[in-house]
Design a protein around this nucleic acid. Structure first.
Lengths: 304, 304
DNA sequence: ACGCCCAGTGAAAGTAAGTTTCATCCGTGG
DNA sequence: CCACGGATGAAACTTACTTTCACTGGGCGT
């Protein structure tokens, strides 16, 4: 029916802006220009007329409309009022935080700390806001019932994958993580119906992870993707897609905000799975906690 | 010029609705009908088109415009976005967050997500608040000037240590991380004055990490501890102590909140170090980013 | 290398929304 | 009873939004 793949923006009450920035890479260049303007200053965009906005983005009105559709709106007026609402909601605390994406060259450490913390915290919050509980539920179900869970991730996302694996393992689930692609592929080949494969890639374009997930899917496993970009390639090989909402700016913050967001999602899944079977989980956790006890020194109340 | 008595609504951000209902009696009958609709459901009014609203108020578009002017707006579109903003704001307060520390046994996933995200975000924020910029500064100085940096951490904190190592490495610093205690001890023994050793332990009681840090200190290296507990044993072997502010509750959230807090601190240090030498850093980052490019598939706009 | 195809784009036509104008209505006071 | 003026809606008008369509340029198969 519709040739333009609208990504529903309906079930994400708190995050139109977030939603848009997630979609940013999947937009055409001209639409991206529009998107950037909108994300940069939603309130201002809401004030502008479509012609005005188009001019500002150095494009035509037609493109602005296309952009509206791309992000799930019916038309410009709808985008406008949604933006206005959004902007009103995010009336930041009175203090003039150094929030903008970037950190000024001459910033002192206190500023840097404030900025980073703010962005990190926001990534976590916004991720939670846009997470679809229904999808989480399905993923939790699948993992809870899985005979085996493989978690894939490369580079920075590898840490998260590893973390997830460890968490699942700690509550008695059979979970694996492979730092090496070849090993991962081998493992994926051994998966079957009822098993679950989780692929983590911030950009959603990491070919290693995609391949492995594809393999897993071919074998009949349920595949889950965790990425920041809802239209990235990895989502094509996933049965369930979970997204984070980190708006990475430049290199500076590296992938930290996105990593935090990923960890939050992983934590949610973990708790969800754990909650499914309290007793079993608790027992396993106590056992593992006890195991590391010997590696701790006395309670260490006060020093000296 | 203006024969209609505009009542400026510009500088009362909090109460467009209040403002309107205030001057309701001064409006003409037809305008009052419009006003009542607007006050009754601002969000709904914002969604309507002028014709639609006029019809609903059993009047003409002209009257709606007059109403807009009467309440200080330039025209209908402006009223519309103001209403949208207003409505959005007043929906916020009643949000009953499931904030409490713990997750009730019967909680559904949406609740779990909200709780976790809240706690995670708070850990990040609170950590930033209590971080001492002066200490950070000294640590950044030390790392920036270090010939070599060793990062230690076990278990969950190991991820963070590893992350820090990788970050430093990416900007061209000589940094190491060792998953294995023995190797770490060996490495610590090779440190000397001017080098830096960073020990990460949430509890501050992980003997492995403490021992290694102790060793490093004995060799003359500057030691840094990152822990949640400012009086824990690890602080005794550290020249500089950085603390996180995660209040872990029970097992449920596992160590995630603390991990996020640690990552945030690490990120701050990283950015601090990176900021010290922009040029060098940027170059190194570009090079490393380029290196992984081949492992990515095309921009992945839209799916099939 | 060539040409086909198709996503991306803006110009322009078309439609809908918003605004102004103006004639009418109606109540009031001379 | 008429003149007046505020209130109002119909219609003309303007501006904003949407659709259509033709053109471009890059990718891909032959």
């Amino acid at each position: 029916m519709a040739k333009s793949p609208k990504i529903s923006a309906s079930h994400e009450p708190g995050g139109l802006i977030v939603h848009i920035s997630g979609l940013l890479p999947s937009l055409s260049p001209a639409e991206q220009r529009v998107a950037r303007l909108v994300v940069a200053d939603p309130a201002d965009a809401a004030r502008r007329t479509i012609t005005d906005l188009a001019t500002a983005a150095e494009t035509s009105e037609a493109t602005v409309i296309r952009f509206c559709r791309s992000v799930g709106m019916n038309g410009y007026p709808q985008l406008r009022i949604r933006l206005a609402a959004e902007a009103a909601r995010r009336v930041e605390p009175p203090d003039a935080r150094v929030v903008g994406g970037d950190i000024p060259p001459g910033a002192d450490l206190a500023q840097i700390i404030a900025t980073i913390a703010f962005n990190d915290a926001r990534a976590v919050e916004e991720t939670a806001e846009q997470l679809d509980p229904a999808v989480c539920e399905r993923v939790v179900e699948a993992i809870g019932a899985a005979g085996r869970i493989d978690v894939y991730g490369a580079g920075a996302s590898g840490f998260v994958a590893s973390d997830f694996q460890q968490k699942l393992h700690r509550i008695g689930r059979i979970a694996f993580y492979f730092p090496d692609v070849h090993t991962a592929l081998t493992s994926a080949a051994l998966l079957g119906r009822g098993d679950v494969a989780v692929g983590i890639s911030h950009t959603g374009t990491t070919s290693d992870v995609i391949e492995v997930l594809e393999q897993a899917r071919a074998r009949g496993a349920t595949t889950v993707a965790l990425t920041n970009f809802p239209r990235s390639p990895i989502t094509e090989v996933a049965d369930h897609v979970l997204t984070t909402a980190a708006r990475e700016t430049t290199y500076r913050s590296g992938a930290t905000a996105s990593r935090l967001a990923q960890l939050t999602v992983v934590d949610c899944l973990f708790v969800g799975v754990a909650a499914r079977s309290r007793a079993r989980t608790k027992k396993a956790l106590e056992a593992t906690a006890e195991a590391v006890q010997s590696r701790r020194v006395g309670p260490g109340r006060r020093r000296a």
